[in-house]
Design a protein around this nucleic acid. Sequence first.
DNA 1: TATAGCGCTATACTTTGGTATAGCAATAAC
DNA 2: GTTATTGCTATACCAAAGTATAGCGCTATA
Lengths: 124, 124
Amino acid sequence: MDRITELEKVKSCSTQFVLAINDTLNVISGKWKLPIIGSLLYGKKRFKELEREIPRITPRMLSKELKDLEANGIVTRTVYNSIPVMVEYELTISGQSLHEVLEPMIGWGLQHRKTILGMRYNVV
Amino acid sequence: MDRITELEKVKSCSTQFVLAINDTLNVISGKWKLPIIGSLLYGKKRFKELEREIPRITPRMLSKELKDLEANGIVTRTVYNSIPVMVEYELTISGQSLHEVLEPMIGWGLQHRKTILGMRYNVV
DNA sequence: TATAGCGCTATACTTTGGTATAGCAATAAC
DNA sequence: GTTATTGCTATACCAAAGTATAGCGCTATA
């Protein structure tokens, strides 16, 4: 009985956790989100600066992804009423704090690649 | 000049990092990967057990995702030559170590949701 | 007047991810 | 002999994600 309630607790908990993980995944998955976030980690940027820094991105995708990131509270968009208009994109606090999640992903990715390569020689 | 080489170093580094992050993302993104990994965190499971534990998954998707996870070194597939055959799926060490990356994602997801909700009252 | 830069949007298309439904070969239970 | 279970695969389809290409209104520069 103890083990069953434990399991139930774990399961209901993990449902909440899966939701939180999915929230995080929605913010960073897709082909262009990481390059954009990575580019903004070193300071605010204008539209054309991002376009130049991210090879092969189309303005359509850049516009779309920036809107998405803004809607999700990851970047802020500031329009200056200079002539012609200037628009700057900047990471929010939440956006900056993404490094907490990106760092372990880097660690795991590098380690996993090593493990996979190692398996070719050590196993079978 | 110092600052330029610094920037170049940072950029070439972050390219490597983006690759590592994408390796990680490929392993956990998609609709069914997390439920499957979550289900296997508590021990090895058979095909039908997974099918029953994961609501609404079709056998096609379960089969496909398990193959994918196996190809990526996240789960192992063991066939017992009992009659009828029994097949068991289990997380590899790499698969188990994914909790290192999932935990910060849970943390960030929960915190981010709080931040977003808080903004409605504190800002504007 | 023409060319180029800025910050995008519109339209149409392809590719990828996921769904729905059916069925197979083997065996066990009724 | 009929039904059910296991561990899948085949076929067809649909929706989301991403690509390609063009163009807009504005202004500065030559």
